[in-house]
């Protein structure tokens, strides 16, 4: 019995609704405890200020007076959460495995590195222009019925659908 509960929490993948409920609860919980909107991507500006020579950039100076605020801790926590989940389920390991990208796109590692870096570049740039990401706009914003977040999320999805279908058609030869 206890073993079964343990397996269902730490080893077996969760059903979608269990994860959705907990992620959704973060929205009111963060307001209740800290009067703060759920959001991840703004914290990447903290990392820019901490890691890159961004001292002269006005936007960074104005938006991030203290880069060591809660956003960095939230980011660190998400990394730690992924580590705990994969370690307890026995899946942790430094790996080049990226599902069907690895099995269907026969690229050398360096090409893969450039590919994922470039996609990340679009994510970082796009999130700032759009004013948020999946957590801030799509989950927090829509849960609060904000029209701007609904509109932005529609365009997130359009971009994702275009990119993924192109990747499948061109790089994966139409396979899946």
């Amino acid at each position: 019995m206890i073993l079964e509960i343990y397996s269902n929490i730490f080893i077996n993948p969760w059903p979608y609704w269990a994860g959705g409920i907990i992620i959704g609860l973060l929205v009111p919980l963060l307001y209740y405890y800290y009067n703060t909107a759920l959001g991840v991507s703004t914290g990447y500006g903290n990392l820019v200020k901490i890691l890159l020579p961004a001292g002269k950039l006005k936007w960074i100076q104005e938006k991030y007076p203290d880069p060591w605020n809660w956003r960095v801790y939230f980011i660190a926590g998400i990394i730690l959460g992924g580590f705990i989940s994969s370690t307890l389920s026995g899946n942790f390991g430094f790996t080049l495995d990226m599902g069907r990208f690895t099995t269907l796109v026969g690229w050398p590692t360096i090409a893969g590195v450039i590919y994922f870096f470039s996609g990340g570049l679009l994510l970082g740039l796009g999130a700032r222009i759009a004013g948020g990401c999946t957590s801030g706009h799509s989950i927090h914003g829509i849960a609060n019925l904000h029209g701007s977040s609904i509109l932005v999320t529609i365009f997130f999805l359009i971009g994702g659908i275009i990119a993924a279908n192109l990747v499948q058609a061109v790089l994966m030869g139409g396979n899946w």
Partner: peptide
Amino acid sequence: LGAGIFGLGWGITGACPG
């Protein structure tokens, strides 16, 4: 436009900032 750029990155990397 930013949202569209973000979406392309989402579909390319199979990841978002979280």
